[in-house]
């Protein structure tokens, strides 16, 4: 294969669209041609850069509140009993008055159905008080060693947060007994005091909408998992437990003022930072629901912690 022939196959090779035989010919050519190897590497790099840029672009990120509302609507549609099921369960055909009422309901539902079909979901209801974008970070190819070290330390801290959620909020399996937030405020930092109030207040606003359902505060304390101490607020939503965990850290801040979705094998994790603390929201809700909770509490919790960080009061 000559360079010119290979140039015609560049795109298909990059897209893994070549036949096995042709692929072998390309590989043989690449082994012996530095120019084509360099050109291929440059094209591959550009493709990666474009992918990273587009996937990270704030304007193409879905609004979590919109996603959550849509999910709730879909769930309701999917699980709604059929009209025939309702008739069957109420034995409406046996009672003429009930049959008449059922027909009226049917006609109203039919009208409502056409009305709904012709109008979009009132997104403005769920979009209020919500930030517009959410960023799922894609690893940069030029990440330095220092950034990698920070990344590893951050992953370790995330692992501790997930471990604390699993062993404290779900299993009550900690080796050390938790202490109250007031006690922790004396020993480990004043931000512990009233942290539960800073967490629950904004959630009460967002989750007052009947479509979202209610969110409850189950408890708050200070606990330690695997040597790392957390201020821990436990919430309940749709019968699932959610942990808001705050811990001390002096790792550099990579994404200031951003709530980030993180990967964990077992749980959904969203996190945000202040100058000297990291806040994690851990649950087994959907990523969108977990992220919505993190975004809702982020301003108030950051303000609560930063006030202590700045004044020490």
């Amino acid at each position: 294969m000559r360079c010119q022939e290979f140039k015609e196959l560049f795109d298909s090779y990059l897209g893994d669209e070549l036949l096995v035989e042709t692929n072998h010919e390309v590989l043989r050519h690449l082994e012996n041609c530095t120019a084509c190897r360099n050109e291929l590497a440059a094209r591959r790099e550009l493709r990666t850069r474009v992918r990273v840029a587009v996937k990270n672009a704030p304007e193409v990120q879905i609004n979590p509140a919109f996603a959550m509302r849509l999910q709730a609507n879909l769930r309701e549609t999917a699980l709604r009993p059929t009209f025939l099921e309702k008739i069957k369960s109420n034995n409406l055909f046996g009672n003429p008055a009930m049959l008449g009422a059922a027909m009226c309901v049917f006609l109203i539902m039919l009208g409502g159905f056409f009305w709904l079909r012709n109008s979009s979901v009132p997104k403005d209801v769920v979009q209020s008080n919500q930030p517009d974008n959410i960023v799922f970070p894609v690893k940069s190819p030029t990440e330095t060693n220092l950034m990698q070290a920070v990344h590893i330390a951050w992953q370790e801290m995330t692992r501790h947060a997930v471990g604390d959620h699993e062993n404290c909020a779900l299993e009550h399996n900690l080796t050390e007994e938790p202490i109250t937030l007031s006690e922790a405020a004396e020993k480990y930092g004043k931000y512990n005091k009233n942290l539960d109030k800073a967490v629950i207040a904004p959630l009460r606003e967002v989750f007052s909408d009947k479509d979202f359902g209610k969110i409850d505060l189950l408890g708050a304390h200070s606990c330690a998992f695997d040597g790392r101490r957390f201020a821990h607020v436990v919430l309940q939503y749709r019968n699932r437990r959610i942990s808001v965990l705050v811990t001390d850290t002096d790792l550099p801040i990579e994404n200031e003022n951003q709530v980030l979705a993180q990967t964990s094998e077992t749980m959904r994790v969203a996190s945000f930072r202040t100058a000297h603390h990291a806040v994690f929201v851990v649950s087994d809700l959907s990523e969108t629901e977990n992220m919505t909770i993190a975004k809702a509490i982020s301003p108030a919790v950051s303000r609560h912690i930063e006030k202590i960080e700045k004044t020490g009061a």
């Binding site: 587009v54 996937k55 304007e59 193409v60 990120q61 879905i62 996603a67 849509l70 999910q71 879909l74 799922f136 959907s286 990523e287 969108t288």
Partner: peptide
């Protein structure tokens, strides 16, 4: 449902 962000991204483009 986990693909909702991807679908939105394509829709936005």
């Amino acid at each position: 449902l986990p693909l909702m962000p991807d679908v939105f991204r394509v829709a936005k483009w």
